[in-house]
């Protein structure tokens, strides 16, 4: 049942990409996404695809895990593609039927827009597949540290994120348990109209909220007992440190963005 839900989508493996500093992966993903908007011709897409293919190969993540990320956005993808197809005006008209006009430019734009969206999604998928949620929060904390200067509580936000992530599996398990307990008392969650179904959820939600509040207060107490006082002067057990492969990764990214920009400027198609 609910137990089967996995949070995040980390795919455990031993690869160069997995071992990279999470900050590198966050920055690289960001750069990759920006790079997707630096060109508007076929050669750019080929370069982006080749580069991404190499990264996937290096990460040892099976390809079907990567494409899985597209599934939830398939509707949006079709919608955007359709919009681009129908609303792009151009000179070379392919089909004209009533108010529908399809142009060559429209087809081109549709294909490119869809490709761009797909690259965007699978690009960030690769990051979440190779980085644990905790590493991600660490990276975000470290990358946003400069914002401390303008009084943004970066550490606290990161701490809240990691606590939230930590609690998701616990609460999922708890929900599963409460659901079963109420089913053992004859509760039925599967039949009835929508209002009835929502009403039937009350015996799950109240115990769940009660337990979440209890756990939160226990955790707060435990943190207090360990003299937790926020980020100031706090050191890490596993501080993030750039190593040689991380530097190389940054250089590779720099090289990639240079190639993409030059290609965008000088290659005709």
């Amino acid at each position: 049942m609910l137990r089967d839900i996995t949070i995040g989508q980390y795919y455990a493996s031993e690869s160069v990409i997995h071992r990279l500093d999470p900050r590198v992966k966050v920055v690289a993903t960001f750069v990759y996404i920006i790079s997707l908007f630096c060109f508007d011709q076929l050669s750019g897409y080929i370069i982006a695809a080749l580069f991404f293919g190499c990264m996937v190969k290096l990460s040892k993540v099976p390809f079907k895990f990567i494409t899985r990320g597209i599934k939830p956005i398939i509707f949006m993808l079709i919608f955007t593609a359709a919009l681009n197809l129908l609303w792009t005006s151009g000179e070379h008209i392919l089909i004209k039927a009533g108010f529908i006009t399809i142009t060559v430019e429209g087809v081109k734009k549709m294909v490119f827009m869809a490709l761009r969206l797909i690259f965007l999604i699978i690009g960030s998928s690769l990051m979440t597949l190779t980085t644990t949620p905790n590493q991600l929060t660490d990276a975000i904390e470290s990358l946003f540290k400069p914002l401390n200067k303008v009084k943004v509580p970066v550490h606290e936000i990161a701490m809240m994120m990691s606590i939230a992530l930590r609690f998701i599996p616990i609460l999922v398990e708890e929900t599963d348990k409460i659901m079963k307990a109420q089913m053992a008392r004859g509760a039925d969650f599967e039949s009835g109209n929508i209002i009835q179904r929502v009403k039937n959820m009350v015996p799950i939600f109240i115990p769940l909220f009660v337990s979440a509040a209890r756990r939160a207060s226990d955790l707060a107490l435990a943190m207090d007992a360990r003299c937790y006082h926020g980020g100031e002067g706090r050191t890490k057990m596993k501080p993030l440190k750039y190593k040689k492969p991380d530097i190389i990764a940054y250089l590779v990214m720099f090289g990639y963005i240079c190639i993409i920009i030059t290609a965008g400027k000088f290659l005709p198609i």
Binding site: E174, K177, I178, K180, A181, Q182, M183, A184, R185, G186, A187, D188, V202, P203, I206, P207, V210, S211
Partner: peptide, 30 residues
């Protein structure tokens, strides 16, 4: 499920009604 009653571990975590009597009536009501 009505013939084989199952009391889970820490069953007090499944209480949800406003009063004790209402909570106990949840099973029979179902």
């Amino acid at each position: 499920r009505s013939k084989v009653g199952l009391v889970f571990q820490y069953p007090e975590h499944q209480l949800f009604e406003t009063t004790v009597i209402n909570d106990v009536q949840f099973g029979p009501k179902n």
